[in-house]
Amino acid sequence: MKVAIAGAGAVGRAIARELLVNEHDVTLFEKNRTHIDPVAVPGANWVHADACELSDLEAAGLQTFDVMIAATGDDKANLVVSLLATTEFAVSRVVARVNDPRNEWLFNEDWGIDVAVSTPRMLASLVEEAVTVGDLVRLMTFRQGQANLVELTLPDDTPLAGKAVRRLKLPRDVALVAIIRGRRVIVPQSDDPLEGGDELVFIAPEESEDELHQTIKAPI
């Protein structure tokens, strides 16, 4: 997969390293020449360019990329990069970093963004996930499909203990994608039994979250 990353700061470089480990073709766009350091991310391509400038993106051939990641420390820049990538270059997947949670409402499909990642929100969600049992915790929002990645930890005395996954009567358009049990990550099969303490990870539209929560809380 060919991935462009706008912003070669600490965040952009860290993302690039992770993608390179998985053998993706990664290009870092950085407008500050003094920040360009190929030795810092071996294997990545570096382009001295302002990702908010249409001419620079044209020169770099952004239309040939599969993914654009707007990872600068400036929310305004990330919005512009995302919009250009989608509307001018038809990049099929756009992921944007949200620096200020107050701006999160802007990071949606109107700006060409498929997934918005807010570090403060994610950290808060992880804290909630670590201490909350029996409540639904939203981990991430997928903007393109208006769906959320949500988690619920079953209490030890859950009425679902010993019941098969197929017995769950999930709301429409809700999918159970993983069961985390201790250090195990289980891809759920219909006959797999549930246990108290299981972390259930779902993809669900926002309007189905309350129904999902009630379904998991109610005995079968």
Rank of each mutant, 00 (worst) to 15 (best):
H213T: 14
D25K: 03
Q63W: 04
H24M: 05
A116K: 04
M68E: 05
I216R: 06
E104S: 11
L83Q: 15
N99A: 04
Q146N: 15
K163G: 00
V150F: 06
A85Y: 01
G9M: 09
I113Q: 07
I179Q: 00
K76L: 13
A51N: 03
T27E: 07
F89A: 02
L149F: 14
N103D: 09
V174N: 03
K76C: 07
A161P: 06
L62P: 08
T72E: 05
F142G: 07
P101D: 01
L154C: 04
N45Y: 11
E58I: 07
L152I: 15
L19M: 10
A10G: 11
A204P: 15
F107K: 04
H213N: 09
R13A: 11
V26R: 03
P205A: 08
P155D: 06
L83W: 11
S55R: 02
P205G: 04
A124R: 10
V165E: 00
A85D: 03
E104F: 05
G112L: 07
E151Q: 05
G162C: 09
E211D: 12
A59M: 10
R13C: 13
V91K: 00
C52H: 01
T141N: 03
I203V: 15
E195A: 10
S55C: 07
I36D: 14
R33L: 13
I180T: 10
N32Q: 14
E88H: 14
R166I: 07
A44P: 10
I186K: 07
R167M: 10
P159R: 04
I69F: 00
V81I: 12
T72H: 02
I179C: 08
A4Y: 09
L139D: 03
F89W: 05
E23R: 11
E23H: 08
A59I: 08
Q144V: 15
L20K: 12
A218S: 13
S190I: 11
V3C: 06
L126P: 04
E18S: 15
T86Y: 06
I186Q: 06
V115P: 00
A6H: 07
V98W: 02
E195F: 06
A4F: 10
M1I: 14
N99P: 01
D114V: 14
G145L: 05
D66W: 02
T132D: 12
V150M: 14
A147W: 04
L152K: 05
I179V: 15
R93P: 07
L170F: 10
T27A: 12
S190W: 01
G182N: 05
L152R: 07
D192M: 13
L160D: 00
I69R: 09
G134A: 11
L62Y: 04
V201E: 02
